[in-house]
């Protein structure tokens, strides 16, 4: 299995009218890995995932998903891919069992009833199997959607912000499940906004405004950034944040309770900017690696004005 690629695409481009949503996208995902897909809203994550599973036809580029051509073999890709949409897209007026049963029929599964029974048991919903999907809470809907996506035993799972609006416990359970599946050889591409989830991935790809800005392991992404960060701890960091904001050499200042992250790309300028404050009483200054979030905010910087302006 080593070395085989589940996803291998190059130059993927998608335009909606005159707007280019995804530009020259390349990705090679080996089988059995979990890849995280990050980026601000509207960065083209969903569009890319849809192109990978044959829901959108790319305007440029080519590639393969599980060895099938994304342009010409969408039907085969659909049979072997589980795609979990951002918005719950199963039937709210069907019960849990009926939804799973529908999926099993659509994939022409042998031993349909048994497969559905097992999926329900695994979800722990045997007693509630006749409840309508629309009556489930967000976390349960998401678990149902995942169960429905993996029911036909796909080789590749594409998850579009699967944990949005789900509580931490449910998110943790969800990720356990993802890693268990990956351990069985399933390849997973998951888009998310959560940094802790990004850190659970084998590799991350950071996409902003249709372009890949960073990729690699979490450490690689952090090391490859040209960002320098100081962390300040103390009771009065909020006031300090106000003072430092916009000073030359300082690109980002963000408060995390009693901690302050100060980052900049020019180490010398950054140190000059913070020098007058270094000796304030009650503050502890530490030079540190930037966090993943610092890096992402920084990567987005040049684009932010472009969008809001």
């Amino acid at each position: 299995m080593n070395g085989e690629l589940a996803i291998d695409v190059a130059g993927l481009t998608k335009k909606f009218g005159s707007r280019t949503v995804v530009k020259d996208f390349n990705i090679q995902v080996p089988k059995g890995q979990v890849w995280g897909f990050l980026g601000p809203n509207g960065s083209g994550k969903t569009t890319t995932i849809r192109m990978l599973c044959g829901l959108l036809l790319p305007d440029g580029g080519q590639g393969k998903c599980l060895g099938y051509d994304i342009r010409t073999q969408a039907a085969q890709i659909k049979r072997n891919v589980g795609y979990m949409t951002q918005r719950f897209s199963f039937y709210e007026d069907l019960s849990i069992r009926e939804n799973l049963d529908f999926v099993a029929r659509v994939y022409d599964m042998k031993g349909r009833k048994q497969a559905v029974d097992e999926a329900i048991a695994q979800l722990g919903l045997t007693k509630r199997q006749d409840q309508l999907a629309g009556e489930l809470s967000g976390g349960w809907k998401q678990r149902l959607a995942l169960a429905a996506c993996i029911l036909h035993r796909p080789q590749l799972l594409l998850l579009d912000e699967p944990t949005a609006g789900v509580d931490p416990q449910a998110r943790r359970d969800f990720w356990e499940e993802i890693h268990t599946l990956a351990g069985q050889g399933l390849t997973v591409l998951v888009s998310t906004h959560y940094m802790d989830e990004a850190e659970r991935c084998d590799r991350i790809v950071y996409l902003a405004y249709g372009t890949v800005l960073a990729r690699g392991t979490v450490d690689e992404v952090i090391d490859n950034s040209d960002l320098f960060t100081w962390i300040v701890t103390g009771e009065e960091v909020r006031g300090l944040a106000q003072e430092l904001h916009g000073k030359p050499g300082i690109d980002q200042v963000s408060v995390f309770g009693v901690t302050l992250h100060i980052s900049g790309t020019d180490q010398a300028a950054l140190e000059r900017a913070i020098a007058p404050y270094r000796n304030r009483p009650g503050l502890t200054w530490t030079k540190s690696k930037p966090s993943l979030e610092d890096v992402f905010i920084h990567l987005m910087g040049p684009f932010r004005e472009q969008v809001t302006g």
Partner: peptide, 14 residues
């Protein structure tokens, strides 16, 4: 409208 079309299209239905 309900968003279930996306799922329907992602499945191998003709």
């Amino acid at each position: 409208e309900r968003g279930t079309m996306e799922n329907l299209l992602a499945m191998p239905l003709q």
